[in-house]
């Protein structure tokens, strides 16, 4: 690892000041699980590392006035998976975070750091996108920008977090009354691996067993997490029969764009994306109180 200067930010304003002092030559670090590895591999060689972990006020999980759940960016991923409010109101989010690596990594890795990392193989983003969660970005002088999680990821390990911005929180709405949710992770290798394919589904059947609102998002099958819009479109308003579900997920291979790697060829992942999308839909139906 090439040496650098480490600056521990004591509060947000201090962090913004450090960012403005060191600009391009600096990287932000919270848990460090991603950045330290990148620096070890020399992928990233900042002259300055700005530590965020000691910034107060960013590690709480609370209900907002409008009934959403706000998760501070410095919450560890384990904190999220075990928090009573998340377990009760956002079981899909708790489930997705529980699938990340190992308990040790989830102790270290933070919610904000994971989002800013922009790795398309991570577990939480598909769940957050399927739920319609938003990311809160802060910059100097109290400026805030709220971005749908779906729009955060712009390219391979590239996010829409702009220079001068810090991810400060995540706001997720609980799934609608009667909705079922599911997160499926296809893991043919080891339990702590990244997914070969992952799918999150949030689906609200109506009183007659027809599909109401539905959102499906996939991870590990492209340069960013991907929303299966054509499949959602095909399902909406249709009776939730096996035939209709199969027809809907048949659009998934065209929606994804996987890379060949040691977790599988692109063709294989494309096929598995369809299979796991179907399973996620069926699991979400089973988890709904209406079917």
């Amino acid at each position: 690892m090439i040496d650098f200067e480490f600056h521990q930010a004591t509060d947000l304003d201090h962090a913004f000041a450090l960012m403005s002092d060191y600009g391009d030559d600096s990287r932000l670090m919270s848990g460090g699980t991603a950045l330290v590895l990148q620096m070890k591999q020399r992928f990233s060689q900042p002259g300055h590392v700005i530590g965020l972990r000691r910034i107060p006020g960013l590690d709480s999980i609370e209900e907002t006035e409008d009934g959403n759940v706000r998760i501070g960016a410095l919450c560890s991923q384990r904190q999220v998976e075990n928090h009573p409010l998340v377990l009760e109101r956002l079981p899909l989010v708790a489930e997705a975070y529980r699938h990340v690596a190992t308990p040790r990594i989830r102790n270290m890795a933070t919610v904000g750091g994971g989002l800013a990392h922009g790795d398309p193989n991570q577990d939480p983003p598909p769940a957050l996108i399927a739920l319609g969660a938003s990311v809160e970005l802060s910059s100097a002088n109290g400026v805030r920008r709220i971005l749908p999680a779906e729009d955060l990821f712009v390219d391979y390990f590239e996010t829409d977090v702009r220079p001068g911005e810090i991810v400060t929180g995540l706001v997720a709405p609980p799934a609608a009354e009667g909705a079922g949710t599911a997160y499926m992770k296809f893991l043919p290798r080891t339990a702590d691996d990244y997914a070969t394919v992952s799918v999150a589904a949030v689906l609200t059947p109506d009183e007659e067993g027809k599909c109401g609102d539905v959102r499906i998002a996939l991870g590990s099958v492209g340069l960013t997490p991907i929303r299966a819009r054509a499949a959602e479109e095909a399902l909406r308003g249709q009776p939730l029969t096996e035939k209709n579900i199969r027809a809907a997920v048949a659009t998934v291979p065209d929606a994804v764009d996987p890379l060949d790697d040691h977790r599988g060829s692109a063709d294989y992942k494309r096929e598995m994306a369809e299979v796991f999308a179907r399973r996620a839909i069926i699991q979400a139906m089973a988890n709904s109180s209406r079917v």
Binding site: F6, V36, K40, P103, R104
Partner: peptide
């Protein structure tokens, strides 16, 4: 996991933890 230690009671991987942090 060979490098596991506890920092403020929480287990961490000390091989990817900057001491300064």
């Amino acid at each position: 996991g060979a490098c596991t230690v506890l920092v403020d009671g929480e287990m961490v991987a000390s091989c990817i933890t900057l001491a300064a942090s």
